[in-house]
Amino acid sequence: MVGFGRHCRRSRRLAELGINPGTEITVVQSDPGQPLLLRVRGSQLAVDRRVAHQLFVTPLEPMPEFLHLRRGWRRWGRGGGPKGRGWRSGRSRRWRKASLDDVEPMESDRNEDEA
């Protein structure tokens, strides 16, 4: 996890729940229209997309996971935002990183298959 967006009103709460810069976050589940399910420091947190959008991360997993970045980089080039909603251009460019809700979930099932 890299940082909070400037418009994140919940940053302190998140920090207290264990999401602070430098923390590893696993996206357990990310289904359209649903909040994200994250695993942080051993506990599961449900976070809705509005909040997740304000969390900036760098993918840690090796290349395959990295490629699961859905839209982040591509759309960046076009100047649009992920899903084009709740996005104001330039708001978080300084991070040059993907927002958390662009990261594909790392399903445990998939890991097992690869292993």
């Binding site: 009103r9 729940l17 909040p35 599961q44 947190l45 449900a46 809705d48 909040v51």
Partner: peptide, 12 residues
């Protein structure tokens, strides 16, 4: 006045 955000722990 402000949008609420959902943030909750899912207990095991």
């Amino acid at each position: 006045s402000e949008e609420t955000s959902f943030l909750m722990e899912l207990p095991s």
